[in-house]
């Protein structure tokens, strides 16, 4: 994630992204892939990157924006370095996912869909990661933590806070 780095590094990332785009631009229907690449590289789909995608793939800017805002995986605000997601699929819901969400919101001081101002944490809910046998589940940067209880959530959050608040930001940047 490169949402909190200086402009020189960002320029490099943009250049790298443009090279990624060059490779795919002649394929058919490449907008979704381009947005996945952007989301993965930048942690969100920045406004200027939308413009680059529109120009390179030769699709209207409004189409790019319309697609970004349609799919919940693409975001317009940076995801935190620690991306915490709580599954609220049916199975997780009836096994207490709401409680976990509440715990996370209170501990991190951000709501579902938000990123902390320091860029360390983002919190979201997802609809089923397909690990229903481990319900309720929470994912941290994509890694699944299963059979969570409020107690375990407290511990997980404490661990994450220790890990992410003590680390200099640049260590996490890819």
């Amino acid at each position: 994630m490169v949402s909190h780095i200086n402009s020189e590094e960002r320029q490099k990332e943009i250049a790298a992204f443009e090279r990624d785009l060059e490779r795919i631009k002649d394929g058919r229907g490449m907008l979704m892939l381009a947005l996945h690449l952007a989301q993965n590289r930048f942690g969100y789909v920045p406004s200027d990157v939308q413009r680059i995608i529109a120009d390179t793939l030769k699709v209207p800017l409004s189409t790019v924006y319309g697609v970004v805002t349609f799919y919940s995986r693409f975001t317009l605000i940076p995801r935190g370095r620690c991306d915490l997601s709580i599954c609220t699929g049916t199975t997780c819901y009836i096994q207490g996912a709401e409680e976990l969400l509440k715990e996370a919101e209170e501990t991190l001081g951000i709501k579902d869909g938000e990123t902390s101002p320091d860029g360390n944490f983002s919190l979201s809910t997802t609809r089923c990661v397909g690990a229903c046998s481990l319900a309720p589940v929470v994912t941290v940067n994509g890694e699944v933590h299963g059979r969570m209880t409020v107690q375990e959530m407290k511990k997980l959050l404490a661990d994450l806070k220790k890990q992410y608040l003590s680390q200099p930001e640049s260590n996490e940047d890819k």
Partner: peptide
């Protein structure tokens, strides 16, 4: 392989096709 991006409605065939084409999955 084409990746979805978090839209349940894309299970509907015409929405799925729209999504592969790079459009909103409507």
């Amino acid at each position: 392989i084409r990746l979805g991006a978090g839209a349940f409605v894309c299970g509907e065939t015409t929405a799925l096709a729209a999504s592969i084409e790079g459009r909103r999955g409507m």
